[in-house]
């Protein structure tokens, strides 16, 4: 196994204000992995993602991204890490006052010194990568939910990030759009070697794309299983994981 994970999380506790949602979280994400964070509704998956991306501070523990401890990172180190990280939010989070082209161009204008023409070319290319070639001048309100997610992904990919986070990518999508997005995630991982971290509880999606995963258990407030989702289904380490991965099939029946 690779000894230098791209993300190393140690003894992390997450939550808001005085309310701890999850604790003692320790896991590694290897470079090029598709890593699934799964668990029931309200177990803290999105909170973990927000903590990993620096939106909320951890209550305890350390997060190392590319070897840099985020709590001790200087502003310039933090900016450098953000530059190498893209996020696709649940709603797409496109800026509604900007066209798709302007949305994708924003990180390029912020972090690079490319000319306007060069930026225009990159924007067209990134939109084409997600199947939205020619949609530069559309506003987010003029396209469908699935297209908004794709455009959000194009913006997340704008700076060729090494890590891309996905927060519930299938939420609000029909099965076909959801599958298409899964295929896109696989293609991006395969073609660009991007490390992908996905927060989801959609079973078809996590079995289709997941190489590694952690299961967040609400009852014990920590990770109760790690590994490949398909392997976890074959050899579930506990009742919660089995029931989750089989949509509530009785664990007792299986063990009889």
């Amino acid at each position: 196994m690779n000894q230098n994970p791209i993300i190393h999380v140690e003894d992390l506790a997450i939550g808001y204000d005085d309310n701890t949602i999850m604790k003692n979280l320790t896991f590694d994400v290897q470079k090029g992995d598709i890593f699934i964070i799964m668990g029931g509704s309200g177990c803290g998956k999105s909170t973990l993602l927000r903590t990993l991306t620096g939106l909320i501070p951890p209550q305890n523990g350390q997060i190392y991204i590319q070897g840099v401890e985020m709590g001790e990172a200087t502003n310039s180190q933090r900016l450098e890490i953000m530059k190498h990280m893209g996020i696709l939010y649940q709603s797409g989070a496109l800026f509604s006052s900007m066209t798709l082209g302007e949305n994708v161009a924003l990180p390029l204008q912020q972090y690079t010194k490319y000319t306007q023409n060069k930026i225009r070319d990159i924007v067209a290319f990134k939109l084409a990568l997600v199947g939205l070639a020619g949609f530069e001048n559309y506003y987010p309100s003029e396209i469908s939910g699935g297209m908004r997610k794709r455009a959000g992904l194009a913006r997340a990919l704008a700076l060729d990030p090494e890590i891309v986070y996905f927060d519930e990518p299938s939420a609000g999508l029909d099965p076909i759009s959801s599958k298409n997005l899964d295929d896109l995630i696989l293609q991006i991982n395969k073609s660009l070697g991007t490390t992908i971290i996905v927060v989801t509880h959609e079973l078809p999606s996590l079995f289709a794309i997941g190489k590694n995963s952690i299961f967040l258990d609400k009852t014990i407030q920590t990770i109760s299983a790690k590994g490949n989702p398909k392997e976890l289904l074959k050899n579930p380490p506990n009742k919660q994981v089995y029931e989750f991965l089989t949509r509530g099939a009785s664990h007792e029946k299986r063990t009889k």
Partner: peptide, 15 residues
């Protein structure tokens, strides 16, 4: 924008 996570997107873009 906060409800639509646009503010989060700005923050994680370092803007």
């Amino acid at each position: 924008m906060q409800v639509n996570e646009e503010l989060d997107a700005l923050q994680t873009m370092g803007i």
